[in-house]
Nucleic acid binder design. Structure first.
Lengths: 213, 213
DNA sequence: GGAGAAATTATACACTTGCATAATTACGCG
DNA sequence: CGCGTAATTATGCAAGTGTATAATTTCTCC
């Protein structure tokens, strides 16, 4: 007798957990946190609903795990590209480019952000993850701007650096938001071009020329 | 016999509808669209749940009515302040100020935006309302920028105007978002100052001096 | 190959949800 | 005043929710 029709297959714990988390993110993006039901998640991950309880002690815990997974992925996607670049100006440009290109700019990413917002504001653990990630982004951007200004021979005081970082972060966030909300409203590369121009105008740096070592 | 303990009071239809819509917006902001239950809305509006069916044929219809009410209010709040101002530069500055001051910048407004996003992307009617409002904002901003540039003796071609409007809209949206997400992270007036500086830097216009006729 | 343990499924339960329908109540109008 | 109509409440229902627990199945190890 062949076991070809065995009723299920055992999987390594980490793989199953990740599959459940990915299914959760899909459904949260499509239907919001409350719309991502335990049964729906199980179906999307090709398991029965009972299994979720075996890996996560509650739906709440699964949601939190999914949120942290998503935030880590977004961070990696944003900072991976420019890590190796040479000049501060080139790294700043790489940061802008990475933040305004798929898969960071993406309807699904925006939907996830919006869906999680409510829970982020209420749940202390998720709030902590959110604020940490946000501070990480903005601090890193501020350091990049400071280095690029220094490099250009025009260092700026801390108070001004803070304002520049807030402004550049805002324009990037705004473009990210609009690119995700209206994917067809912008030509390929248009967001990057506008983002570069805007950051350049705000900081007074030249981000347009390609050579950057 | 005094009727002091009569079990309910009749209200004009419009007043009751608005009360239900306001209660809906409260709950949507707090718990998301799915978290805003018919029973919760009725309780918040001090009626029993059956009454909702009397004024709205379904929860869906109530949600759509609430969304349109909210969008209209946001539009009014943004454009009312600067309508009467004199020079184009002053009107542009009033637009920036209005967009970056409470009650436009507000955690509740951000929560509503995020909560509605999912439904906006799926429901055609809500999508239409959203895109119309968004286009109205950006077109109006583009017209303001065009007039201010003209006024300053530096008219710009259409393609550049489009990019300037997208960029300015993005920085305003981004600051609006961050002000709503982290209300305590910014000093009063700080967002307006950063917003003015950023729009000024992007467009090359001077928005800082106060006199504006 | 077969026992033991862990992964997975199957089933059940109490609760909430939106909606429908019947029963009351208030209030204008003769 | 009292009658009728519409606003409002009261009650019920079928479907969906998260979670708990029992029943199976797979796989490892000897």
């Amino acid at each position: 007798m062949t076991d070809e029709r065995r009723k299920f297959k055992r999987e390594p714990a980490e793989a199953r957990k990740e599959a459940l988390i990915l299914a959760t993110l899909e459904l949260v993006a499509e239907n919001g946190v409350r719309g991502a039901t335990v049964r729906g998640i199980a179906q999307r991950a090709d398991v029965t609903q009972g299994l979720i309880r075996h890996y996560f002690s509650s739906k709440e815990e699964l949601i939190i795990a999914a949120y942290e997974h998503h935030m880590n992925q977004m961070t990696d996607l944003t900072f991976a590209p420019g890590a190796a670049a040479g000049s501060a100006r080139a790294r700043l440009r790489a940061f802008v480019d990475g933040s305004l290109t798929p898969p960071v700019v993406d309807p699904r990413a925006l939907a996830l952000w919006a869906s999680f917002l409510n829970k982020v504001q209420n749940d202390p653990q998720m709030k902590e993850t959110h604020e940490r990630t946000y501070a990480y982004f903005r601090d890193r951007l501020e350091v990049l701007i400071a280095a690029a200004l220094e490099e250009a021979g025009r260092p700026a005081p801390a108070a001004r650096l803070r304002q520049l970082a807030i402004a550049c972060n805002a324009v990037i966030d705004g473009l990210w938001l609009e690119g995700g909300a209206l994917p067809d409203a912008f030509a390929p590369g248009e967001l990057v071009e506008i983002g570069r121009h805007s950051v350049a105008a705000i900081t007074g740096l030249d981000l347009m020329q390609e050579a950057g070592t």
